[in-house]
Simulated scan of single mutants.
Amino acid sequence: MTERRKAVLDAVLALLVEKGAAALTMTAVARRASCSKETLYKWFQDRDGLLTATVRWQASQVRAGAYDRHHLDVGALRESLEAFAGGWLRVIASRTSIALNRIAIAQAETLGGIVLANGRFAIGERMKPLLADAREAGLLAFEDAEQAFRTFFGLVGRDVQIRLLLGEPLVLDEAAIAGDARRATDQFLALYGAAKMPAGAG
């Protein structure tokens, strides 16, 4: 992802926040990003391709942190889980993410699949290797990685995203995000930890 393409995707997000999906045309994006429509079609093929890239760009900010799979311990696992939780909360609380998800809901037949495939499902696939490595290291105990991920995802998000989408002015500053990430991690380890892990261990 070059800086120039990032600027184009940032322009897409800005248009969605300011004017909604109806204003999202290749012409409008080209004008906002100061590039040609020909360049947009070359990079993204069409409007759906542009939206797909935009969702991927948003979702790429949610990561499980860096860790050494050959030396994974409780501390590294906790740090990685909290990094994922904090990243996801920051993304869903952003004005751009709220606007993008509202549009996907309103146009579920056309955009819903794009957001699911390149948002929620893609994030899950990035997270599952950490869970598998933690199980192999004897830190977690579960039978199905998808079910374990969904549990963690639910513990992190709770009802926050739906409340944001419905317009509640929730305050999610860095202190609140860090606290929520830590709480979700503690709860997840209490459910799936292979050995007793005190809160804040590591």
Rank of each mutant, 00 (worst) to 15 (best):
A7Y: 03
V74W: 01
A104E: 06
A22G: 10
G49V: 05
A33E: 08
T27S: 13
V17F: 04
Q107P: 02
R31T: 10
E79A: 15
L81A: 02
A76D: 14
A117G: 01
R90T: 09
R102N: 07
H71D: 13
D68I: 07
L40Q: 10
G65W: 01
A99G: 07
T110W: 11
W57I: 00
K19E: 15
A106K: 04
D48C: 07
G20S: 07
R95I: 03
S34H: 09
Y41C: 01
E79W: 12
A117K: 07
I98Q: 09
E79S: 14
G75W: 01
R32C: 02
V17L: 02
A23C: 11
E18Y: 09
R5N: 15
K6H: 12
K19A: 15
K6T: 10
L72E: 01
A53L: 05
R102P: 01
A59E: 10
T52L: 03
A104G: 13
N118A: 13
Q107K: 13
G65E: 09
W57H: 15
R63H: 13
G113H: 08
V8S: 06
E38H: 00
W88M: 06
I103S: 05
V12N: 07
A23T: 04
L51N: 06
E38C: 00
R56I: 04
I105F: 12
L81N: 06
I123Q: 14
W43T: 13
W57S: 03
E82P: 09
K42Y: 14
L72F: 07
D73P: 04
A85E: 04
I103M: 13
A28V: 07
A64N: 05
W57K: 02
F84H: 14
E79T: 14
T39P: 01
R32T: 08
D46K: 14
D46G: 09
R31D: 12
K19S: 15
A117H: 07
V91Y: 06
V115T: 14
R47Q: 12
I92Y: 01
H70Y: 09
Y41R: 15
S80Q: 05
G87F: 06
A93L: 00
K19W: 14
E18I: 10
N101L: 12
R102S: 03
A104K: 08
S80Y: 01
A122K: 04
L77N: 08
A14W: 04
R120I: 12
W43K: 11
A93D: 09
A76G: 13
T39R: 14
K19R: 15
L51Y: 10
M26S: 07
D48S: 14
R95Q: 10
R120D: 09
T39F: 08
A11L: 05
D48N: 15
A66T: 15
L72N: 06
I105N: 11
W88S: 09
R63N: 12
G75M: 03
K42A: 08
L89F: 03
R102G: 04
T39A: 15
S94M: 11
A76I: 07
G65S: 01
E18P: 11
A106D: 11
R120K: 04
R56W: 00
M26W: 02
S94R: 11
G87A: 05
R56T: 11
A76F: 04
E109G: 12
E38W: 06
A28S: 12
